[in-house]
Amino acid sequence: MNPLLFPVVIAAALILLVAVRYGLRRRRHQEMQRLLDSADALEARLRAARRQIEAVTGESDADPVHEAMREMLRQRLWLREQGAQARVAELHSVRLSIDQARERIERQLERVEEAQMLEV
Rank of each mutant, 00 (worst) to 15 (best):
R28G: 07
W78Q: 01
S60Q: 11
M1R: 12
A86I: 05
E113W: 05
R111G: 09
S97A: 13
A44T: 14
Q30P: 01
H92D: 12
E54K: 08
E54T: 15
A55C: 08
V94R: 02
R87W: 07
R51F: 12
Q100I: 04
L118P: 03
R104V: 04
V65W: 00
I98C: 01
E114Q: 15
V94S: 03
D37C: 04
P64K: 01
D61I: 12
R28Y: 08
R76Y: 03
L14T: 07
L35Q: 06
E114W: 10
H29S: 14
S60H: 11
G83E: 03
A101M: 11
A84I: 06
I15D: 05
E113K: 07
H92K: 11
D40S: 14
L14Q: 10
R80T: 06
W78T: 07
R76K: 11
E54D: 15
H29G: 13
L5Q: 13
M117F: 09
V94L: 12
L42D: 01
L14D: 09
A101L: 06
L36S: 03
L36V: 12
L14P: 05
D37A: 15
S38H: 08
R80L: 05
N2Y: 01
R50Q: 15
E31W: 05
A49V: 09
E54P: 04
Q108P: 00
R34W: 09
W78E: 05
D37P: 00
Q85R: 13
A44W: 02
I53M: 10
M32A: 08
R51W: 10
R95T: 02
Q82W: 02
G58Q: 08
E106W: 00
R51Q: 15
D40P: 02
L73N: 07
E90C: 04
W78V: 04
V18K: 03
L46G: 04
R107M: 12
R80E: 10
E81I: 01
M117W: 12
Q33F: 07
L42A: 08
A13C: 07
H29E: 12
S60A: 14
R27A: 11
Q30T: 09
L17K: 03
A48H: 13
I98L: 15
D37T: 13
